[in-house]
Design a protein around this nucleic acid. Structure first.
Length: 283
DNA sequence: CACCATGTTCCTTG
DNA sequence: CCAAGGAACATGGT
């Protein structure tokens, strides 16, 4: 469930539920997610600690905690990978099959579940160093974007997935943003005109912001104690009839473009699927 | 059995 | 040294 908008919505929903809660016990079922933190180290740091803040950076969840001994704060980072979910469960509810970590907060467990185990739950913050600006932030200016694209011959679609260029864009919203900007996913980054770059920046910001708005207004099947967050809006959702229509091109191979009715095409770039309209995105 | 999947990291090649 | 491409990680759905 993992691109910037989904993480943003999750963070905002989770924050008030975790705030000021004290960790009683930590159960680690998949050590791999902690890399390179050792399980004993994570348990020692978390047990008795208290959640004081939660924020999003790119696709990461950044938990700020106050240690058991009360001095200062420290950071815990979560990443949902491809299939990660985080939510609260009553302590008497069974933990799901692919539970990575379960944190006992007293009456409930804060659960990190991840079917494919690509996600992370760690004290290692080194990955934050290489991240580029937030696409919705002030630092992501037209000038920055133009400058960053000028140095690369890589296809613009592939470039958008580069977290060092702009942090938080994933495969779905990269495809959608290029469509809204009317830019071909195959266009080499350095070939974008100033006008195209401006349109793309605008499309990125608008597409991401709209997805966040949708996620915040969406009637989630998750009051904080349900069994699933039900949060990821792509795919078949719970009770959302207009769900499929949210995407203009992603996953719509062979279906008519919503603007010109030309069949949407699927190509492979950097081993990932790209969906686009060959007519609306000619250059 | 085949192919596909919201992500990141590591290794190889040029 | 760098850029770019591909595989690996692991599980499940269609």
């Amino acid at each position: 469930m993992p691109e910037l908008p989904e993480v943003e919505v999750l963070v905002r929903r989770l924050a008030p539920l975790l705030k000021n809660k004290t960790i009683r016990r930590v159960e680690i079922r998949r050590e791999r997610a902690l890399r390179p933190t050792r399980p004993a180290e994570l348990k020692r740091a978390l047990t008795g600690a208290r959640f004081v803040d939660l924020a999003r950076r790119a696709k990461y969840l950044a938990f700020t905690l106050r240690p058991a001994d009360g001095g200062g704060t420290f950071l815990l980072l979560g990443h949902l990978g491809m299939t990660g979910r985080m939510y609260l469960l009553p302590v008497n509810a069974p933990l799901p099959k692919h539970t990575v970590v379960a944190i006992n907060l007293g009456g409930e467990n804060f659960v990190f579940e991840d079917t494919r185990y690509f996600g992370r739950f760690t004290l290692d913050t080194s990955t934050q160093q290489g991240l580029g600006p937030e696409p919705l932030g002030e630092e992501f200016t037209v000038e920055y974007f133009i400058h960053a694209l000028q140095r690369s011959a890589q296809a613009i679609k592939v470039k958008l997935l580069d977290q060092a260029l702009v942090a938080g864009v994933g495969n779905i919203y990269a495809c959608e943003s290029l469509f809204h900007a009317g830019v071909s996913p195959r266009l080499p980054a350095r070939k974008l005109t100033r006008a195209q770059t401006e349109r793309l920046r605008r499309a990125l910001r608008q597409t991401l912001a709209e997805a966040i708005q949708f996620g915040r207004s969406f009637a989630l099947d998750w009051p904080g104690t349900g069994e699933r967050d039900g949060l990821f809006y792509f795919g078949r959702a719970v009770n959302a009839p207009d769900y499929e229509e949210r995407m203009s091109v992603y996953g719509h191979q062979g279906q008519p473009c919503p603007v010109c009715r030309t069949p949407i095409r699927r190509i492979v770039q950097a081993a990932r699927s790209t969906f686009y309209c060959p007519r609306c995105q000619r250059t």
